[in-house]
Write a protein that binds this DNA or RNA. Structure first.
Lengths: 223, 223
DNA sequence: CACCTTGGATAGCCGCACTATCCAGCACTT
DNA sequence: AAGTGCTGGATAGTGCGGCTATCCAAGGTG
C-alpha cells in the first residue's frame, strides 16, 4: 500500500509517518520507483505499536527507536535483547547523589531487595528509578518503612509472574519480545489507572455519606 | 529567609523559584520592603513538594498548580478537594471515539468494574485513562480478557486499601490531602519500578542459565 | 557614600513532536 | 501526448513546556 493508505488505515497523518520514517522508527517501504514506495501489513502493525508506545506509553520518540531497535537486534540473544529494550525505557532523573536522602533511599532499596530475595543490580535503570522515588518521599518526610514497601514489592512480584505467564504464550522470539515491551509499557498506564480508580472507590466507601452512590466528583479532564 | 537561602536549602536555582512564584506554584513571600521578601519553612516544604511532583512524578507545571490549588481550596469539603486534586492529574490522551477498539475497551472496562464491584463513573479521568490503555492493547491485537484484568484489579484494590490506611494516619485535613496527593503521585513511579524489577528478577529466574546470578544486563541509563 | 544584593519583569533558549512548504518524478485520464 | 494531480523526499518552521539570562531600580551593608 502507499503512504496515503497507510496513513488512513492507521489514523496517523502522512507528515507524521514521514517523520517516523526519518527518525528510524519505521523501516522504509519497498521502493517501487524513484518516487514511490510500497508498505505492507507489517508496516501497519509496527506503526500502531509505535503510536501506542508514544501516545499511551508516553515514551519519547528517540527512546522508542532505541527500544524497537533492541527488539530486532539479531546480534544478541533473546535475553539480552529484552534487557536492552527494557533498559532503554525512560526511568526518570538520576538520583541526586549530593542529597543525603538518596543515601537513605539506597539503603532502604537494598534492604527491601534483601527481604524480597531479589538480586537486581543497583545500576539497573528500574533500580535507580526506585531509589529516586524513595529519595523524594524521604525528602518530603513521608515514612516509607519496610512495612509499607514490602506489600508493594510482593504485589509487584505477583504482577510480574502474571505478566510473564502471558508473554510465554507467544511463540516466535521477536513476537515474544514485542509482546514483552508492549505489555511492560502499555500495562503501566492501565495499572496506574486501576490504582487510582481503586483509590476513588475505596475512599468513597470509607468517607462518603451513606446516601451517595459512587466516588467523589472531579474536575474536567485536562487533555 | 531570603530567596537565595531558599534556593540553597532546596537545591533549586533562584531563577526557577522565581518562575514557580510567577506560575503560582509557590505563594509569594512576606514582603519586608519593596525589594525584599521573607520565606519561611512552609515555603521550603512546599517547594520540595513541587519539585517532587514535577521531577519525580513527571507532572506538568500547570497541572501541579491546579492540583495544589485544589488541595488548599477551602470553599470545598475534604472529599471534593481530594476529588478535584486527583482529577486534575494528567491522565493521558482522551480515547479516540472514532476507533472501534475504543468501544470494545469501554465494554471491557464496564465489565471489569461490574466483576470487581466498582462504581467509578466513566467520565472519571482515571476511568478514561483505563479505556485509552485498553483500546491501545485491543488495537495491537493483544488479548486483555477478564482473566488478565481481574488479577490486576484485585491487586489494585489491595494497593488502594493499603494506601488509604497510610493516609488516614495523618490528622490535619490539609496535611492529609497533601499526603494523599504525594502518595498517589510519588508511589506511582515506585510501583512501576518495582514491577519492572520484578520482571527482571522473574525473567532471570525462568530463563537464565543456571550458572548466572542476577537478571540480564542492560544498556546505559538514558538520564 | 560606594557597592553589592534582592526581587520583579521581560525576553530568550532549548528540546521535542510535529507540521507546512517545496519540489521533481511518475501515473492515470482524456 | 499533454495535462493534472498525487507520491515520496528534503528542509524549514511552529507551538509548547520548562526553564534561564539579562536588565533594572530600590534597598541594605561596610
Amino acid at each position: 500500500m502507499r503512504l496515503a493508505e497507510l496513513s488512513e488505515r492507521s489514523g496517523v497523518s502522512t507528515a507524521t509517518i514521514k517523520y517516523y520514517l526519518r527518525e528510524g522508527l519505521l523501516p522504509p517501504g519497498d521502493r517501487i520507483s524513484t518516487t514511490q514506495a510500497d508498505y505492507g501489513e507489517e508496516h501497519l502493525r509496527r506503526l500502531r505499536l509505535v503510536r501506542a508506545l508514544i501516545q499511551v506509553g508516553r515514551i519519547p520518540v528517540a527512546t522508542a527507536r532505541e527500544v524497537l531497535s533492541a527488539v530486532s537486534d539479531d546480534t544478541l540473544d533473546q535475553n539480552s535483547r529484552l534487557g536492552s529494550a527494557v533498559g532503554a525505557l525512560p526511568h526518570g532523573p538520576a538520583p541526586d547523589e549530593s542529597d543525603p536522602a538518596t543515601a537513605t533511599a539506597r539503603r532502604t532499596a537494598a534492604e527491601l531487595q534483601r527481604r524480597l530475595g531479589w538480586t537486581v543490580p543497583p545500576e539497573y535503570p528500574a533500580c535507580r528509578m526506585l531509589v529516586a522515588s524513595l529519595a523524594a518521599l524521604v525528602r518530603l518526610g513521608y515514612p516509607c518503612g519496610m512495612d509499607r514497601l514490602l506489600p508493594y514489592g510482593r504485589l509487584a512480584e505477583r504482577l510480574a509472574s502474571h505478566d510473564l505467564d502471558l508473554i510465554e504464550e507467544f511463540e516466535a522470539p521477536t513476537t515474544q519480545l514485542e509482546a514483552a515491551v508492549a505489555l511492560t509499557v502499555l500495562y503501566e498506564p492501565m495499572l496506574l489507572s486501576l490504582r487510582r480508580m481503586a483509590h476513588a472507590q475505596e475512599s468513597a466507601r470509607r468517607f462518603a455519606p451513606p446516601g451517595e452512590a459512587g466516588p467523589g466528583q472531579n474536575r474536567e479532564p485536562g487533555r
